[in-house]
Design a protein around this nucleic acid. Structure first.
Lengths: 249, 249
DNA sequence: CGACACCTTGAAGAGGTTCAAGAAATGTGG
DNA sequence: CCACATTTCTTGAACCTCTTCAAGGTGTCG
């Protein structure tokens, strides 16, 4: 196993600067003045590269930092004592991971890269220091955590009340919408995760995910070639999600 | 150090004081000095009583405050456009609700009292002001939000990977454990919610909840008389949750 | 005391899982 | 670059869990 950690520790090679980052609108607060924006750069200690399949952190690891994803794609998953596994989310560029670790000073889930990735490491005590001085940052941190809580409410709704087709439709629409917000296509996407990981996230078995994809293809709503998905009828998927199977009016 | 505050009988004049509150260990940070503890009292604007069945806030309401539950019992639930409903949690004394509202300045779920309740109203901008000055409070706020995120991970695991019996067992154990932490019995509890609300929370229909209760009774694990539940065999419930139906390792 | 909400139980049915087999893609080492 | 091993994906058939529909019982509150 080759050790790739060294290269990411080389400080002068990398100009860490939120103020330049093209993801700033996604992960940083708006409405700061120039001086505050400059100070934000202090928040990022360094960057770290994670190869596909590797973990950014694991359940039990000491918590020290939040991570802003620069490139790549992650899944987070929790496990119960008896080995049950649940994917709790998929994260992409501009999103923040690590919030789970704050409460107990240790992470309670795994964050695994589904493709080669790079993150900004933001030591949490620096975040706390800075956010005491920059109100906009304080508010931003609170919003990020609240957003995650609300997102999870949505997942609970999905897991608690939707059927397989509705879950997969909601999943695809959510993914493509987030990708679109990052400049990708509205209708085409490449799944970074396996059917099993999708299934875990949606509370379904991988066979059910596969079958449901096949059904969507039959119905002409999407094209699927392995992990390449093209959405042909966004409206139909929306109807699936919002009109629980078709009550009239 | 006389920390006894005068309380008039006039409800308008009740001096709100976290420093006296017997729930302080549950909802307030530890390790503050005397001056900081005094300042915490500023956080609570007033108290508010909510009758059983009434909402503390509803989806769409303007967000302004977090609420610390003093007495009573709440459920929070989200609804999708098409009227699907999902209970996202049950909250009891010492717990904080309202975090969902921070991100968008509006609440995205309903908080409904399941029995007559009283809450401390903590305007969020005061919380932010104070937590810029009291590091312990800042950290505490972060922990509360992180705890909620981690709690929801647990619910996702439950909804995504457990079967009906496992879900109900986990639910009962969680409830009784939280009640025990508040000085109630380890083995006896009164359910404040209907079978339907339990079902919504657990992603099951009310009939399934009822049948599963009956099965637990048959198996001698619990006694159930309507909403009064006595746990006879905690270990058996624990095994149900942790050994997914009995793999023999 | 009567109306209403809540709970229990049965029987039939649907949706998803499990088990199994094979196909397609991906990665690896020679 | 190819052959082989491995992982991932698809599809079928049988099965099982939970849901749905229905009816009756129990508790509660004005």
């Amino acid at each position: 196993m080759t050790d790739v950690k060294i290269q990411s520790m080389n400080p002068q090679a990398i100009k860490v600067a939120c103020s330049n980052c093209n993801l700033r609108e996604l992960c940083m607060p708006l409405g700061l003045n120039a001086e505050e924006i400059d100070r934000l750069d202090l928040m990022v200690a360094n960057r770290r590269k994670i190869k596909r399949g590797e973990a950014l952190f694991r359940n039990g690891d000491k918590f020290s930092s939040l991570y802003a994803i620069r490139t790549g794609f992650f899944k987070t998953c929790v496990a119960s004592e008896d080995g049950r596994d649940q994917v709790t989310g998929f994260q992409m560029a501009g999103e923040i991971i690590g919030l789970d670790g704050i409460v107990s000073d240790h992470h309670s889930c795994d964050a695994v890269a589904l493709e080669d990735a790079e993150v900004c490491v933001m030591p949490f005590d620096r975040i706390e220091d800075l956010s005491r001085e920059i109100n906009g940052l304080q508010r931003h941190v609170h919003k990020i955590m609240s957003r995650e809580i609300v997102r999870e409410h949505g997942v609970m709704l999905l897991l608690g009340s939707m059927r397989a087709e509705e879950r997969l439709a909601a999943f695809l629409l959510n993914l493509v919408q987030r990708l679109h917000a990052r400049g990708f296509s509205q209708s085409e996407l490449i799944l970074r995760m396996t059917r099993e990981e999708i299934g875990s996230y949606l509370g379904l078995k991988l066979e059910t995910v596969s079958r449901t994809f096949s059904k969507f293809v039959e119905d002409g709503m999407v094209e699927v070639k392995q992990r390449h998905v093209r959405i042909l009828d966004t409206e139909a998927l929306n109807r699936l999600v919002n009109h629980q199977g078709g009550e009239c009016h």
